[in-house]
């Protein structure tokens, strides 16, 4: 089997003691600086605008921007930490994400767009509050449902208690007799 032998070859390369050797693999042509055309800006970095669409809000600045960044950051999970938002975490990647949120918000993207961007990149996991749709509705409806059902049970109990209170003493005495008999 060719595949198996090839695999073996790769496996043999695994023990990572492999120190510096002259066999530097030069990956083929790195294209040098042609002037950007079409969708690319001349600067370095990553192109995000075609995934984000057009900014739907107004560019923010100053305190308004700070507030918006804080709001977005509180809802995004820091990818490297456990249960902390990128607002709370000091991890380098959390700082980078806050900076990204700030940059996008200052360009006029709305909070929803920025949160959506992170979700699109990292998956639903990055949202500290699950979106209220589909199966997630369980988690949104559960608290209210529990309070309602519990409240109903309490109400039923109160009604039943009031009704049985008068005749209750007799039954109670009978039960006492039964219990002491056993």
């Amino acid at each position: 089997m060719r595949r198996a032998t090839a695999l073996l070859g790769l496996l043999a390369a695994l023990p990572f003691a492999a120190p510096a050797s002259a066999q530097e693999t030069d990956t083929p042509p790195k294209v040098a600086l042609p002037p950007a055309e079409g969708e690319f800006r001349p600067g370095l970095g990553v192109e995000t605008s075609h995934e984000l669409g057009d900014p739907l809000g107004l560019p923010l600045s100053g305190e308004e921007l700070d507030r918006a960044v804080a709001e977005v950051a509180a809802d995004i999970r820091c990818p490297k930490c456990q249960a902390l938002s990128i607002a709370d975490s000091g991890a380098a990647s959390a700082q980078a994400m806050r900076a990204e949120a700030r940059s996008l918000l200052s360009q006029g993207y709305t909070r929803e767009q920025v949160v959506g961007y992170f979700e699109q990149r990292y998956g639903e996991f990055v949202l500290l509050e699950p979106r209220a749709r589909g199966l997630n509705l369980i988690v949104w409806a559960a608290p209210a449902a529990i309070v309602l059902v519990g409240g109903l049970l309490v109400a039923l109990r109160l009604r039943q208690r009031r009704r049985s209170a008068d005749e209750g003493l007799d039954t109670y005495l009978r039960q006492v007799e039964q219990e002491t008999a056993t």
Binding site: E124, V126, L127, E129, A142, P143
Partner: peptide, 24 residues
């Protein structure tokens, strides 16, 4: 309890990892 265990439920039924965190 629901908030803490929902990620497990979501992963079993939807196959997707979700978080339920502080804001919720």
């Amino acid at each position: 309890l629901v908030g803490t265990l929902y990620p497990i439920v979501a992963e079993s039924l939807r196959g997707v990892k979700v978080s339920v965190g502080e804001p919720y």
